[in-house]
């Protein structure tokens, strides 16, 4: 009797395990299926037509879409602009943020509370879209690549996370350098930076992915089509159906961009992130956890 009950218990656990595994498998499929569908469309020949939208494999495989996308010069200029803003923007952001965070982490910084408040206020209140835009016009930064880097140079949230990290560094590490007569700037670059790689990598990756995915700033600040980053090029092709961006025959203005081409373009734009994110996700997870503990 006792034994039988035990067995039942074991059986029950197995069934609940199966339900859980099955549920998670279905859930994963729900996440992946839209991308798979997109991929199938992107390698389908446009003229074969998608009669059965449920098909899991193209009727007629064609590399035409990808060839076409890769001849689109705006995709190339988009990649160039995105890589440019992401690399320069990330290096500048991390440097300025880390320097500021280090200064705020030190008790002997004069007016430390005042400067910390200066950094915190923008987390809760901002001028908003229009005043920022008009100020950028005044600064003559419209259609200037700096407009994509400077307005978001420092994020208070990142700065506070870095400051907390620096505050946890034991003073003893810096003492010996101080005795040797090194100033704060030298201590920061030669001692603090090398031991803070973890937090620098976390914040750096946040900023990098943020730059890669940013679209609104370029949409309102950039004018020249060949200065638009990838996301805005894609947005024009997908949502605004701009033919100029598709590089189709300019005479053929009524031509609607075929779904297969849109799919291939989307795929070309998402590929880098899709390949890289499984390897960098752990830094993002770490960052969320650090952020949630800051208290």
């Amino acid at each position: 009797m006792n034994l039988r009950r035990k067995n039942q218990h074991v059986n029950k656990i197995k069934i609940s395990d199966m339900v859980i595994y099955l549920f998670l498998a279905l859930f994963s499929l729900t996440i992946l299926f839209p991308f798979w569908n997109l991929f199938v469309k992107s390698i389908s020949a446009a003229d074969a037509g998608i009669v059965d939208a449920l098909q899991m494999w193209p009727k007629k495989i064609s590399s035409f879409n990808y060839k076409y996308v890769l001849t689109n010069r705006y995709i190339w200029s988009g990649y160039r602009e995105t890589i440019l803003r992401a690399s320069v923007g990330t290096v500048l952001s991390v440097t300025v943020t880390a320097m500021g965070a280090y200064a705020l982490s030190k008790k002997n910084l004069p007016n430390r509370n005042l400067w910390t408040t200066v950094v915190l206020i923008p987390m809760f209140f901002s001028g908003g879209m229009i005043p920022s835009y008009l100020w950028m016009v005044d600064l003559h930064l419209i259609n200037n690549r700096l407009a994509l880097i400077l307005p978001g140079l420092v994020s208070s949230y990142n700065l506070i996370i870095m400051r907390n990290f620096f505050m946890a560094i034991p003073d003893s590490l810096e003492e010996s350098a101080k005795i040797d007569g090194a100033g704060s700037i030298r201590i920061f670059f030669s001692i603090v930076i090398p031991i803070s790689k973890a937090v620098l990598a976390t914040v750096g990756l946040w900023v990098l992915v943020g730059h890669w995915n940013a679209w609104f700033d370029a949409m309102i600040y950039m004018r020249d089509a060949d200065k638009l980053p990838l996301q805005v090029v894609l947005r024009r092709i997908l949502l605004e159906g701009t033919q100029q961006m598709m590089d189709l025959n300019s005479t053929d203005t009524n031509h609607i961009t075929p779904d297969t081409l849109k799919a291939a373009t989307t795929f070309v734009c998402m590929l880098p992130i899709m390949c890289v994110y499984p390897f960098v996700q752990k830094y993002f997870v770490k960052g969320v956890i650090i952020g949630s503990l800051k208290g």
Partner: peptide, 22 residues
Amino acid sequence: LFILLVPALVFYIIFCYIPMQG
């Protein structure tokens, strides 16, 4: 120490506080 803070402060003044006046 203050010099290290200056670039961030300049950023906050130009890109956060001036637009607030707007």
